[in-house]
Design a protein around this nucleic acid. Structure first.
Lengths: 359, 359
DNA sequence: CTGCGTTTTGTTATCGGTAACATAGTCAGG
DNA sequence: CCTGACTATGTTACCGATAACAAAACGCAG
């Protein structure tokens, strides 16, 4: 039952039917078949039915490769993300796919946080002639920028809020997110504060996580708080295990830390569990703040205070923006800031148990 | 700075360069350019350099749409999954992408567990003329099966272990996974057992989760244990919140349940957190068993006992299989069973605290 | 210097559709 | 019964690459 790639003298399977075959069977020209499939209202009812019967009978599936070449519309949209193994980015992808609708096909590429990978991905996606490109991040090599500008298609930078977008942008300020996290911890009266993130490792770096750390630092400086630590541990992507390891290090170095901001809810969750294993009370002894509003942080106990960003919304808005552009809509704002929201939950709850009320 | 789609009388941007332009600039034929890009060793060194210079100078990016049509190789591989917002499936996608390598582009489609969606997706992916299709699940409509067989490309069914694979299969038996979960709980001496999963809701159903529930039931029957409940709650996909809600219902109906199997680690985690909120001790009062070996279950406290399946491995093996087929390798096994593994962790730890030692 | 196998490059004919324009029919109004 | 505005369908010419075959240039033994 194995199919052979190259059949012998007698072709094993009849060649896949083309529009030509359909047109012959229906007794019409290929253009008529094309019309029936693209816009049936252009074709008389009985002809249309004859064509559809032929399509059915042959099991004809149109060849969009040929169609795209001819019409110069591929209906592809390229999407470049650091990784899909992160619920936030997966949400963005899903949001984008849904907003674009069934007629567009997403071409997804992963950089795995490697800077050099972006250029390769852009080149390889552009070769598929997508009608737009959506890219997480705003850091591009000169040659990447050149390719993007030359491509003459809309480019949407997401998950960030660049001062000077290449073209369009949908996201938020990661710097402000880190700043807001620090302020929230400060507002609770906490002063011995730390942040945990990842370190740059050769080509691998999480620019957005780093921006959040910078924002965190800035807020401490603004508040005149000297007592802060930024712990950069391990390489991106950070996840549960990363948070646990970092928290473990942090507690060893600085046992009386009062508040911790993790650049991602995954990390925050790992940190929380590490505290639990060590008998460190949260929020009793240490308050924890995450980022991203991942489901795990909402559902765990205590629930993790976080900075909410609308991951799915970023994809959805980018998709809507593109659809508008495809339909010829004009400019509109170039950079859309979806903002952030501080979501206080259990891990930074006010400490009413006497022992911790004074600070 | 907005680019216009249709330029006015004078074209705003010079038309994107084609291979023709490169060939003229380099003073060679298009075939030579094509060769330089496809297999440089076929072209003399100085010619090659001249061509490369022209490519650089024009910023030429080859058009794979045209190339695919001509060569009849798209280097696309279609992938159909219920959702990407599930770390297991995201892992599978990543494993597949990595195994296929940079020269193949994945075309991902989501069914969101809707049965009818599969047919639409298969049709729309086949229209892109992929060189192979990878599909989660083994349930297909008659017309889907026909399209798949007609397509004359390898088809790999994953995440299951069908008796009669359509073509190739890489996965494991979900029935056995449920069975193993029940047996593990039974081996701890527990008898009042329950399983939580999702219910079919119109077109939306999780066939693999259901198979695990069936396996669970079967094991109880085999062991002669009457005291079992299968709770089907909510619609797929199940997640943290689902587990919490189901556990809540379960505890209300059956307060003295001793062991719970959740069809997914996400659910199991939600159930665990719900127990924590209610002061129900795990594993003291209730043991919990999940499925999938998600990172959240490994890192939480207590860690969740689970049935491990190698999600990334499924993608990787499917990718390797396809690469072998593309390179003309022959048959090989049609169905690959990657098996399952019971991973006992904290949520089913032996209960040494006197009060629970007898059962 | 000739001949023959290699190496290097070019020519021609598609691949399977769609855009743009051309051409029959159809029908209402005069 | 003719004309003009539609409606329905067909013809022709690509879209931008590559496969397959052809031919020219080169190198070296004899």
């Amino acid at each position: 039952m194995t199919r052979q790639k190259k059949a012998g003298p007698t072709p094993a399977s009849p060649a896949k039917p083309t529009m030509r075959d359909v047109s012959r069977l229906a007794g019409v020209s290929t253009m008529t078949v094309s019309r029936v499939l693209a816009d049936p209202s252009l074709v008389a009812l009985d002809t249309r039915e004859r064509v559809m019967r032929a399509v059915e009978q042959l099991g004809y599936v149109p060849d969009l490769v040929a169609g795209s070449l001819s019409s110069r519309r591929t209906n592809f949209v390229g999407l470049i993300l650091p990784t899909l193994t992160n619920s936030n980015f997966a949400d963005t992808a899903q949001g984008l796919a849904e907003a674009l609708g069934a007629s567009y096909q997403l071409l997804i590429g992963y950089t795995l946080y490697r800077g050099g990978e972006e250029e390769r991905l852009v080149r390889s996606l552009l070769a598929r002639r997508p009608q737009a490109l959506v890219i997480a991040g705003t850091l591009h090599t000169a040659s990447t920028r050149r390719m993007l500008l030359n491509a003459d298609i809309p480019v949407v930078e997401i998950w960030d809020h660049p001062d000077a977008p290449l073209d369009k942008a949908v996201g938020f300020s990661n710097f402000e997110a880190g700043r807001a996290a620090a302020r929230h911890l400060l507002s609770l009266g906490l002063r011995r504060l730390a942040a945990i993130g990842s370190e740059a490792d050769g080509d691998v770096r999480d620019a957005r996580g780093e921006a959040r750390l910078q924002g965190f630092s800035a807020a401490l400086r603004e508040a005149g708080v000297e007592d802060g630590t930024i712990l950069r541990h391990g390489a991106a992507p950070v996840s549960y295990g990363h948070g646990a390891a970092a928290m473990s290090l942090l507690l060893r170095e600085w046992p009386d830390v009062e508040g911790v901001f993790a650049v991602s809810d995954s990390s925050a969750f790992g940190a929380l569990m590490e505290c639990r294993r060590r008998g460190v009370e949260v929020p009793g002894q240490v308050s924890i703040m995450g980022f991203g509003d991942f489901e795990v942080g909402r559902e765990c106990e205590p629930a993790i205070s976080t900075i909410r960003v609308d991951a799915k919304g970023i994809g959805a808005r980018a998709g809507e923006l593109l659809r508008a552009l495809f339909e010829g809509a004009g400019a509109g704002a170039n950079a859309l800031d979806l903002g952030i929201e501080v979501v206080p939950r259990g891990t930074t709850a006010l400490r009413v148990a006497g022992r911790q009320l004074e600070t």
